[in-house]
């Protein structure tokens, strides 16, 4: 018997029937067909059309929807807003998570109690988190806004775009710090004790050791977390934007995902919304490939 050449992702010991696996794959593929591939193809088709929402009049317009997007100031603005938002959110999330992870690694007492509480925001719906933050920072009634103003700072996220951006970054980070935190705690635990001890013998203090030894070893984890934070910021913060700012003021927090929704559902500009969907989907696919190719094998997930 000829040994078949090894296929990636296939067990050496395997079955060789075709009917059963097809049956097993069927539910997954049907779901994907109806709720993923057909909608995606529709988006693709719609992106080349100028159409009445009721479907009364449809013109094929080639790439007009795309060229209109690239020429549109509000779309370019949305791209920049998304970049700033995801960057800001990334920095805040990683820095706070690193500090908390470092501290968790050093303490013995109450460690699991600390962990338990810090994990909580993950359980809370983004829209509820957004509403709580919007309320706290509301310049007219919010207790924290009151505190900021009593310190003499101007604070008005309804009018000032950077205040609004800061607010959504804080709300989005608050929800996501726990995620990075878990990976960093696990990563710190995996740093070989011998390395740390050797450095301690050489007279390096805990903070120095953290920066010189632990942080470089956490590199791949940090890279992985940055990717995941971008994915989070890009695609999963819709509810926070919707609850806190509605993309305003003057489009200052109108991230790409929110704009897809607004142009499609509120403005009924289906062609433009579909073109934006297509661009976002291509970008997401790119991120997936990137993550699959570079991130996956380099990170040690063991806890």
């Amino acid at each position: 018997m000829v040994v078949p050449p090894h296929e990636p992702g296939l067990k050496h010991a395997h079955f060789r029937t075709a009917g059963l696996p097809t049956l097993l794959l069927l539910p997954q593929l049907l779901i994907l067909l109806f709720f993923f591939f057909i909608p995606s193809l529709r988006a693709l088709a719609q992106a080349f059309l100028l159409a009445d929402p009721f479907g009364a009049t449809v013109h094929f317009v080639w790439f007009d929807n795309f060229t209109a997007l690239f020429a549109s100031e509000s779309y370019r603005n949305s791209v920049w807003v998304t970049i700033w938002f995801t960057l800001g959110q990334n920095v805040v999330t990683i820095v706070v998570a690193l500090i908390l992870a470092f501290a968790t690694d050093r303490v013995v007492r109450f460690q699991s109690a600390y962990k338990g509480v810090i994990l909580l925001p993950y359980a809370i719906a983004p829209v509820i988190a957004g509403v709580m933050w919007a309320f706290l920072f509301n310049p007219a009634v919010g207790p924290i806004a009151f505190f900021i103003k009593s310190l003499g700072f101007a604070w008005d996220p309804n009018r000032n775009g950077s205040d609004a951006m800061l607010l959504v970054i804080l709300a989005a980070s608050w929800k996501h710090i726990c995620y990075d935190y878990i990976f960093l705690v696990a990563g710190l635990l995996a740093v070989p004790k011998s390395l740390m001890e050797a450095a301690a013998v050489d007279g390096a203090g805990p903070v120095k050791r953290f920066f010189q030894i632990a942080l470089p070893l956490l590199g791949p984890t940090l890279f992985f977390l940055a990717t995941m934070n971008f994915v989070y910021g890009f695609f999963e913060t819709f509810a926070i934007i919707d609850a806190v700012t509605h993309g305003g003021p003057a489009g200052a927090t109108n991230i790409l995902v929110y704009k897809v929704f607004q142009d499609g559902f509120v403005n009924l500009d289906l062609g433009s919304s579909a073109a934006q969907s297509v661009l976002l989907m291509s970008f997401a696919l790119l991120l997936t490939l990137l993550q699959f190719k570079y991130v996956e094998r380099k990170v040690n997930y063991s806890i």
Binding site: R159, A250, N267, L268, D269
Partner: peptide
């Protein structure tokens, strides 16, 4: 598409306010 142009107008007014 009056809703759409209304939103564009509001954005510009907000830019003025800011």
């Amino acid at each position: 598409n009056f809703t759409q142009s209304m939103f564009a107008q509001r954005e510009e007014v907000e830019a003025l306010f800011a």
